[in-house]
Design a protein around this nucleic acid. Sequence first.
RNA 1: UCCUCAGUAGCUCAAUGGUAGAGCAUUCGGCUGUUAACCGAAGGGUUGUAGGUUCGAGUCCUACCUGAGGAG
Length: 380
Amino acid sequence: MLRFEIQAVCPTTGARAGILHTPHGDVETPVFMPVGTQATVKGILPRDLVNDLDAKIILGNTYHLFLRPGHETIRKLGGLHQFMNWPRAILTDSGGFQVFSLNSLRKITEEGVLFRSHLNGDAHMFTPESTIDVQMALGSDIMMVLDECLEYPASHEAARVSTVRTIRWARQAYAHFRKQRTENACFPIVQGSMYADLRRHCAEKLIDLDADGYAIGGLSVGEPRALSLEMVETAAELLPKDRPRYVMGVGMPDELPQYVARGIDMMDCVLPSRNARNGYLFTSDGRVVIKQTQYKEDPRPVDASCPCYTCRNFSRAYLRHLFLAGEITFSTLATLHNLQRYLDIMREIRQAILLGKLPELLEAVSLHVQEDQHIKKPRS
RNA sequence: UCCUCAGUAGCUCAAUGGUAGAGCAUUCGGCUGUUAACCGAAGGGUUGUAGGUUCGAGUCCUACCUGAGGAG
């Protein structure tokens, strides 16, 4: 059983600071987990992820690694950690998100998901049991059960049918997981679309599994931000207090403390890494879209208060040049920076909780967001 | 000096005599458990110049200008 040590609880919000003890090291929470779908966090090296960024846990993806290079290949080569030379913890997504993102390439049946490979069209059946087997082969520290990430909007009836199936799949996956002799953990996933009754029902059923931790999925699929927060709040308050809670696939920087304030301990998102490659940099003072003309001769770093390698050594003008020239180095420098920003935000939040100052931090962030919106309005 | 070919958006090029377009570049958006170094929108034109034929010319005719190649 995964040990989750809670160090402090915010008396106002219930937010927690803790430590997740995994087979590949301790993870201080709340934590942001960089996404490394295909056995790499795109654009950067494990060396930088460890030495510079000090990330404690990253994501891998069952669907993508199953297709290429294949989980048996990775097993033979010593597991995912050894394969990609990542010494710390790994959480693997089950392929449930690909049910959403590759919706034109799959068919859902009662047994599982029939995917048609986006690489060569081959058909592959993913079942609750088989996705556990694949994640075991990878050697994932925290496995996720197979779920259905539903599109938005969905009717209550469609969401109900989907949620019932996801609950059944979670039970099957968990029963199969229990049979493994492993130190590794497994999280079920709360679904229910944007319906509070379904979210509550799903959470209540999953609690019976007495799982290592619980995820909340199916968010950030196009719904308004307020709804995502509401659904998280609805589910989180039902989940056991002594287990880690993970919101999958969120969010923008100012949303991170909002989730933590609703009792969330873990988050992941492609925004810092993907947006980095697309020229969108997150700073302590808002966004920097590096391709904009205003940065053509800007000698300042992206974020003067950022300790990352990029901000310590390079100007906005230089980064803009690299981006416009299509140079690969841009991706590396930008990804380093954005991930530093996200990891630092979570460290600040964690410190605030430990010091009993989360309410102040939340207030400062919401003020900042309001100012930002005031600035943006006249433009549009 | 003559011959041939070519001049269309910033660049490279499309367009039976019938509403001048594309890619790239530029400017600005978007991106949320990665099918994404990706996707989208906008701006940008006296079709080398001057005439002519035609209901209608980027397209056909004449002259000139510019460039490339060839001949001498």
